[in-house]
Design a protein around this nucleic acid. Structure first.
Lengths: 248, 248
DNA sequence: TGAATAGTGTCTATAAGACAATATCCC
DNA sequence: GGGATATTGTCTTATAGACACTATTCA
C-alpha cells in the first residue's frame, strides 16, 4: 500500500475536520435479473438499527488498496456467492442525510445475473429475497422504484436504496438497444421469444414481435444452433446463442 | 450536521484502519464546450508536487454536509467563476494507485458551458487554459483523451484525468441524440448551421446536412424567431431558439 | 453579377408496424 | 385433427442519405 503523504496543501486540508472530512465509502450492488414479466433484484433484510427490518441492496465498505470494481465483486461474492457476473458502476450517492448514522458515500453498482442463479442465491440465505421491482414510470423518466416479495407483500426499502434501484432500471433500459444485455440474463441457448421476454421485462412494455425478430436477427449478435425446443405443446422454436463478438 | 453514530457493526468496522479506510473524497469537473470544430475543456496547471506542471481538471474536496452536486458546483464557482451551468455526475474513480500521494476517491462531474464563458474563465486566471481535446477513437468506443493548448502544444495531463475526459466525451456523445445538449453550448439564438457545428464537434464526425435539418425541426425542440443572421456574405439563415420544454 | 450558403423538393434505401398465410410440434 | 406458437412474406409508413434546384444576401 502506498504511504499516504500529505505534501499537497489541498490534501493536507482534508485532515482538518472543520473544513474537510473523510466519509466512509460504501459499495451497494443492485443485482438484477429478468423473468416472469418483470425485473427482480436481490435484497437483504437489515437486522440492526437503524431501519431494522427494512430491505437493502447487498453492500459493504471499501477495503484498503481495493479498487471500486473489486469491492463490488467482493460484495457479490460475500452476500450472494456470485462470481463472474456482469458488473458495472452506476452512480455515486452522497447526500449528507442519506444515512441517519452520519455522512456516508455509496458508490452504487449494478449486476446482471441469470434468474436461476439469483433465485438460488436468495433461497440459500436467511434474510435475503429476490424481489420483484415495481417501476411507476415509463421509458427512461427515472425515479424511485419499489419492491415486492414473491408472496405479494411490499418490501420497505432502507436508506436511499429505492433511488439506487431506480437509477439501475433507468440505466439498463437505456443500454438495452445498443448493448447485449440479454446475454447476461439468459442461459446459453434460448429462443427469440425468451429474448423478447427479457427485453419486455426490462423495458416494462410490450414489443412488436415481427420487428423485434427482424432487428435481433439483423444485429449479428445471434446465431442459430440448429436445435429446437422440446415438449412445448406447439411448434418448437429454434434455439439461438449469442455470438462470441457480442459477449464483450 | 448529524452526529456520526457508529452503532452498526459494519459501520464500526470502518474505524478499524486495518480492515477499512476512509479515503479523501474529491470532486473533479470536466467543463466542456464545443467550438472551432472540436471539443474543449478547462484545465488548471498544477503548481505543486507531485506532477507539478501537468494539467488537471478543476477539482476540490468534499466539505462536511455538502452534497456531491453542491461540491461540484462550488468547484466550478471557485475555479472558474461559473454559476448556473449544466452539471451532471459522470463516474467515480477509485483505483488504489490513481493518486501517488495515497488512496483517494474522485467523483467526476462534467459541465456544459457556452464557449465565450469558458474562454473568459480561462483567460482571467493564470495557470488555466481552454484546451482542445484530441479524441483518438470513434463513436462511443471510449478511452483516454489528450489535450492541446490553443498554440498547438500538447498538454500533459495529471493523474487519471485523461481517463476522466474520455469518460466525459463518451457520455455526451451518447446523450447527444436524445438530450438537448446544444442548448447548453449555444447562445440564446443560433442558426441550424451553428447547431450542426456543435453536434459535429461533439461527435467528431461530419453529419448529413439535410437529414440533420429535418431531424432537428421535427424534434419540436426548436422554434424560429423570425429574425435572421446579419452581414454574413451570403444568404442569411433563420435564427432559432430552444423551446422552453427542451430546456429541462 | 458572382460567390457563398440557406432552404425546398424529390427520389431511393432502410427499418418498423401491421397482418395474412403457412409450418410444425404436442395432445 | 385441433390448439398453439413459430416462421415467412408482403404491404404500408416513417426516417435517413443523396442530390438537384431555387432563394437571398454581401462584395
Amino acid at each position: 500500500m502506498p504511504k499516504t503523504d500529505f505534501t499537497d496543501r489541498a490534501f493536507r486540508e482534508t485532515s482538518d475536520p472543520t473544513r474537510f472530512e473523510r466519509p466512509p465509502v460504501g459499495i451497494d450492488v443492485a443485482a438484477l435479473t429478468a423473468g416472469g414479466g418483470g425485473l427482480h433484484a436481490l435484497l437483504v433484510r437489515r437486522d440492526e438499527e437503524p431501519q431494522r427490518g427494512r430491505w437493502t441492496l447487498p453492500g459493504g465498505f471499501l477495503a484498503p488498496d481495493e479498487s471500486l470494481d473489486a469491492a463490488a465483486a467482493r460484495v457479490l461474492r460475500a452476500k450472494a456467492a456470485l462470481r463472474r457476473v456482469f458488473l458495472e458502476q452506476l452512480y455515486t450517492f452522497g447526500a449528507p442525510e442519506r444515512d441517519p448514522r452520519g455522512r456516508a458515500i455509496a458508490v452504487a453498482y449494478y449486476a446482471l445475473v441469470a434468474p436461476e442463479r439469483l433465485r438460488r442465491a436468495a433461497a440459500e440465505r436467511d434474510g435475503e429475497a429476490l424481489a420483484r421491482l415495481e417501476v411507476a414510470w415509463e421509458g427512461e423518466a427515472g425515479g424511485p422504484v419499489g419492491a415486492r416479495s414473491p408472496d405479494g407483500t411490499t418490501l420497505a426499502l432502507a436508506f436511499d436504496h429505492s433511488e439506487i434501484l431506480g437509477m439501475a432500471v433507468k440505466r439498463i433500459r437505456g443500454k438495452l438497444d445498443y448493448a447485449p444485455i440479454g446475454f447476461q440474463l439468459l442461459p446459453a441457448r434460448f429462443t427469440l421469444r425468451d429474448l423478447q421476454d427479457v427485453h419486455e421485462a426490462v423495458l416494462g412494455r410490450q414489443l412488436n414481435k415481427d420487428s423485434f425478430r427482424r432487428r435481433m436477427l439483423a444485429s449479428g449478435q445471434l446465431e442459430a444452433t440448429g436445435d429446437r425446443e422440446r415438449s412445448v405443446g406447439h411448434r418448437p422454436a429454434e434455439l439461438y446463442r449469442f455470438t462470441r463478438r457480442s459477449a464483450i
